[in-house]
Amino acid sequence: MSASTRPTRLFASALTAVALLAGAACSSGDPEPDAATAAGYNLTADQNRITTDEVPEIAAKVPQAIRDRGTLIVTGSAGTAPPLRFYADDDTTLIGSETDFAYLIGDVLGLDIELTAADWAQNFVRIDSGEADTFISNVTVTEERKEKYDFATYRLDSLAVEVKKDSGITFDGPKDIAGLKIGVGSGTNQEELLVQWNEENIAAGLDPAEILYYQNATDYYLALGSGRIDAYVGPNPSSAFHAIQSGETEVVGTFSGAGADLQGEIAVLTKKDNGLIVAINEALNHLIENGTYAQVLERWGISSEAIDSSVINPPGLPKKPA
């Protein structure tokens, strides 16, 4: 499957499921709602986004080069992870909670937002090279990443184990991955956790899990549906959204993206010490205070991942033992 067809097919599948859910919710005498706005989700390119006013005293803290340019360049995933970051029905416009937060930050800072998309690892490269100013795409704070990047938190990090409906698979902890074929995104913190759990299980005499790697949501949906994998571990918002939309999978367990001893947090990532993170942190706290932050979470069904305040560089997922 070519990269250009993936967003369209994912979106078409999502729309079909939304339409079915909406139809079931209507009486026979009611008009059927537009599939693109059913079930509370606006999946069209015309997002009617939540907006807020510029705050000059926060905007003044943006580095001068970015202020002069007038644009904040935001990179993120390639657009197949609803409700976080995915393509609208025009197969071109990036929408979702992560893009909504990017635009709100731009509002506070008085900057236009330029959204770009790349595979996961390439987003870090874009930050390193200065091609992008921020990486806003479900990025977990880790101690290793903090050596190269600054973070301003804006959401809790919850991961989910998604399986085919009626598979009989349950998840209460790391031992439950033993013997399974599990899909995960390469280079993610969930991959790191799975590898760690697998090593611990093997040391305890349990069957090893087979970990398989996917870069696009459509790829693991197909693998899960066909039985090539038993489970997929990814961001809880995306798994919960997909389970509802498809009607073919279910979430059987959730856990912190930072492991058992720490609640993981999702954050805006910038290049370390480039002077941008303070302005972004203050912008996020302003959004929390004025209520627009909560509106975005509610709009995309992820209010359970709200935080009370944005923090710069909190404790992150620990580094692997040397």
Rank of each mutant, 00 (worst) to 15 (best):
D172Q: 12
L193E: 00
G40C: 09
E143T: 12
N290W: 10
E143M: 10
T71A: 13
S129C: 14
K271G: 06
A22D: 11
I277W: 01
T292M: 14
K164S: 11
D157E: 14
D128V: 13
S239P: 02
L10E: 05
G264E: 00
A152Y: 01
D91V: 10
E143I: 07
A78E: 10
C26Y: 10
V251H: 04
P314D: 01
V296M: 14
G76V: 06
D230C: 12
V296W: 04
E131M: 09
T75M: 10
A60G: 12
N123L: 09
G96H: 03
S186D: 08
S238Q: 04
S239E: 06
A12T: 13
P33K: 09
A178H: 06
D273N: 15
L269Q: 04
A243C: 15
A132T: 07
E200C: 01
S4I: 11
E57S: 14
V184S: 01
T188P: 01
T37P: 06
S2F: 11
L222P: 03
T92Q: 15
I169K: 03
A178T: 05
K271L: 09
T134S: 10
F135P: 00
G106M: 11
D261P: 06
H242E: 09
T44K: 12
P63F: 08
E289C: 12
I58H: 01
D157W: 02
G234W: 00
F171E: 02
Q190D: 04
F151W: 08
E210R: 02
G40R: 13
A204E: 04
Y214I: 03
T8C: 07
T51F: 09
P56N: 11
